[in-house]
Simulated assay, not measured.
Amino acid sequence: MKHPEFESDRLLLQHITSEDQPAIFKGLSHPEIIKYYGVHYDTLEETGIQMQWYQNLEKSGSGKWWIIRLRSGSHFCGAIGFNDWNKEHEKAEIGLWLFPEFWGSGIMQEAAELVFPYLFDQLHIHRLEAFVEIENTNSAKLLEKLMFQQEGIMRDAEKKNGRFISITIWSLLNTKN
């Protein structure tokens, strides 16, 4: 599976490589990012697990992730990708995270609008899914802007930090196919 890169006037979306491990660690150890994210790491070395996960997704053909950079200065902003691609059912799960200093800037919406046509038109994914902790209102607002529809709530669906949390289910359908 080829790994395309995307760009807009403001952003570069690039394949995640081993050189990005310090930036991935910075993001996946940041308290405000991991508050609602299912993955976190305490050391740079531990982040190697995440880097291996990115590689395995590509090798297995079950997903891809991109680093999001500003074109001006190539400043690292976050990451976006998809995983759990089920080719039989033409669906995949979308994932994303962004450093807090970029929240509210439209960067994640812009990144998603670069990636989604590839997912729908090139990979022929019919359904994108997102699973969001019920307290993560910022992600819910972003999904609404991206035209996702909330389908329901899985009550006490996961255990995090010793307590049960509820998860909202969101979807965006490819209406072109």
Rank of each mutant, 00 (worst) to 15 (best):
A111R: 08
Q52R: 14
K35D: 04
T175G: 01
A23T: 02
E93Q: 10
R155P: 00
R69T: 04
F6P: 01
M108A: 04
M51Q: 13
S105A: 13
R163P: 00
Y54W: 14
Y36F: 15
E5K: 05
N174K: 10
Q14A: 11
Q149C: 08
H75T: 11
Y118L: 10
F76P: 02
E110N: 06
E46L: 07
P31R: 12
A23S: 14
K176Y: 05
L123M: 14
I94K: 01
L128P: 00
R69F: 05
I67R: 15
H89P: 00
S18I: 07
E144R: 13
Q50H: 13
E46M: 08
P22W: 05
G78R: 10
Q14C: 10
E19P: 01
I169V: 13
E5R: 08
A79P: 00
I125W: 08
E19L: 14
Q122I: 04
N177Y: 10
Y41N: 05
E58A: 08
L13M: 12
R127M: 06
A111W: 04
Y37K: 00
F102N: 11
I134M: 14
I24F: 08
Q52Y: 03
T137P: 00
C77G: 04
L12S: 10
E45R: 07
I24M: 15
C77F: 03
I94C: 10
G48W: 02
E158A: 12
H15I: 07
R127A: 02
E5M: 12
F102K: 09
T175I: 10
W85R: 11
E151M: 09
E151W: 07
G152R: 06
K26Q: 13
W53D: 03
F131E: 12
G81E: 03
A111K: 06
E135Q: 15
G104M: 06
A79C: 13
F148G: 03
V132N: 12
K141M: 09
R127N: 10
W103I: 02
W103F: 15
R71T: 09
P22D: 07
Q122H: 12
I153Q: 09
H3G: 01
E5C: 13
G95W: 04
G104R: 07
I153K: 14
T168Y: 12
I67A: 15
G38P: 03
W53T: 02
F99V: 01
K176F: 04
